Amino acid sequence: MTTTDIIDGPDTARAKSKGTEKTASLYRMAMPGHLCPFGLKSKSMLERKGYEVDDNLLTTREEVDAFQAAHDVKTTPIAFIDGEQIGGYTDLKKHFGYRVLGKDDTTYTPIIAIFGSTALMALAVVLNLYAGFPALTFLMWFFAISMVALAIQKLQDVEAFVNGFLGYDLLARRYVPYGYAYPFLELFAGVGMMALIGTGSALIWLVAPVGIFIGTIGAVSVIKAVYIEKRDLKCACVGGGSNVPLGVISLSENLIMAGMGIWMLGMWLSA
């Protein structure tokens, strides 16, 4: 492809995407210092959908600028199907019927990924360390590992987590440093519970109260914000900037933390 082909404009691009077979024209950035990931994803999607792709690489800044000017677009890649300009990767997803999340849309995908992974880890631990399948022990491992995984999500960007947390947590809104301490407290409680499951150690008295404290405050905060005040908020349970809605997931997280603490103390006292 020459620079002249690029400047020819959208009519040329549309014509190249027409034919008796499923054909698509794709224009994507592939410069020496930058290979556009969305261009590769667009090409892969088109091929998976059965299209023969006329793949046009924009290898210099001049070619990119010329293409954008000729087609009146601000970004690349741009795909054409059956003579129609579809657009970039997100536009292709919409064209093929995939769900595209908007800024205010919600999703439970992060929670499903985390809890699915932690359940498998707990299963691996129980099958490796215990005879048979003690269901209660599996649940304890699952809850403890989940607490650690959720704490890691928050610790990736504590500032972003705190920004979301301050929207609903009652204690953090009165004492902001608690918001910064929360991920570390959750990590401490989760790791501590993992270390003490089944040991009967008195160190449970150092760990369990932390889970009970932060879990109880969190649960009360979610109940007040969501179920009493009816506020529509995003949950900071998987870190800042997530699209997980505040509600049953965050409430469950906090009840599990508090419940784990009470459970472990009860088991120690009954031993």
Rank of each mutant, 00 (worst) to 15 (best):
V126D: 02
L206Q: 03
K103A: 11
M147G: 13
T106S: 10
V176L: 15
F143I: 12
V176P: 15
G102Y: 05
L203N: 12
E186G: 09
F143Y: 09
G132N: 12
F133S: 09
L171Y: 10
M194F: 03
L206N: 02
V210D: 00
K103C: 01
A149P: 07
Y178F: 15
G132R: 12
F138I: 04
R173Q: 15
N163V: 10
F142D: 04
A131N: 15
G198H: 07
A122S: 07
S146G: 14
S146E: 11
L166W: 00
I152H: 01
F115G: 00
A181Q: 08
G190L: 10
G192C: 07
A189R: 03
L170P: 10
F138D: 01
I145V: 15
L206I: 10
V158K: 00
K103D: 11
I204K: 06
L127P: 00
A124V: 09
L206T: 03
L150A: 03
A181G: 10
D105P: 04
G132S: 12
L127K: 13
G132F: 14
E159M: 04
A189E: 07
A195S: 07
L127E: 09
K154E: 03
W141G: 03
A151H: 05
I114G: 01
I114N: 03
A149V: 09
G192R: 00
V158M: 00
S146I: 12
Q156N: 11
Y180F: 10
Q156H: 06
V210R: 00
A124I: 09
T106P: 05
N128W: 14
V125P: 05
A208N: 12
L196I: 09
L129H: 13
R173W: 11
L101E: 11
V191T: 08
A113P: 00
V125I: 15
L196F: 08
A119K: 01
A122Y: 03
F188Y: 13
A181E: 07
I204S: 06
V191G: 04
F184P: 02
T199Y: 05
G167P: 01
Q156R: 13
T199R: 06
A131W: 02
L150K: 02
L120R: 00
T106E: 13
L123G: 01
F213T: 06
L187Q: 09
D105S: 11
F188A: 11
I145R: 04
F133I: 11
P209F: 10
A151W: 03
V158R: 00
P177Y: 14
A119W: 01
M147R: 05
P177N: 15
L170F: 10
V125H: 05
L150S: 03
W205E: 11
L196Y: 08
G198N: 04
P209G: 10
G102H: 04
D105G: 05
G179N: 12
V210T: 02
R173I: 11
V158W: 00
P183N: 03
Y108A: 01
T107P: 06
G116V: 04
T199P: 00
